[in-house]
Design a protein around this nucleic acid. Sequence first.
DNA 1: GATTTAATTAAGTGGTTGCTTAATTAAAAA
DNA 2: TTTTTAATTAAGCAACCACTTAATTAAATC
Lengths: 115, 115
Amino acid sequence: MDLFTALADQTRRQILEMLAQNKELSASEIYAHFTISPQAISQHLKVLREVKLVYVERRAQLRIYRINTEAMIELESWFQKMRHYWIHRLDALDEVLAAEWKEIQKNKTSEDDVP
Amino acid sequence: MDLFTALADQTRRQILEMLAQNKELSASEIYAHFTISPQAISQHLKVLREVKLVYVERRAQLRIYRINTEAMIELESWFQKMRHYWIHRLDALDEVLAAEWKEIQKNKTSEDDVP
DNA sequence: GATTTAATTAAGTGGTTGCTTAATTAAAAA
DNA sequence: TTTTTAATTAAGCAACCACTTAATTAAATC
């Protein structure tokens, strides 16, 4: 089970999205958002723990989960590497820059408003 | 089969890496780099076609493959969205920026040498 | 037309996966 | 101490997945 495989499942992606938006969540808080069984969620959380996309802290009977942002950045770095590859293909420079520019503009306007 | 699921397999990631570095490759050129059977590679290429991570052109008996960079950018945008989430959590701002800064510096030094 | 080349599709299979229900463990509350 | 709460682990299963070999399709070459 590697990082990319862990991301293949939509439920797990949704869990990560929740954890990206919240400092920490207990297992109960996480599975309250799903219709599938708590045991199924627990299995997904186990996968995420094993690939270190999340951390868990035992707090009495609570299991508190947090996202590992460094692992997320590591995943993202693969896409940056890929972009680097095709950007540095001289044959594709013009068309690639145009497509990227369009996408970067779309994302950049919301990312620059860091307080 | 969605974009993330297509990326779960290492062989498919390797195919995409090859296509990111080359304008186009025939199926034969692709599977020449692997020890698994050509039929297995063909099945992986089919997955990549179905989720539109690659394009294929019939050129006589050749099947010429190219990467769809826009789909790659779409995938990457999910990570950008996730980063946006945790950056905008006020509780995590300090520690997150530190981890990100370290990673961005690592990637930025190689990405700025666009010719 | 027969043979070769390029590639895909078909069929089969052992292992994995995402779900379920059942059972267990750990801690708090009564 | 018993009951409740929180969560995980165990067991089961149908569907899926990544591989294989076999067969087929399409185009070029002889």
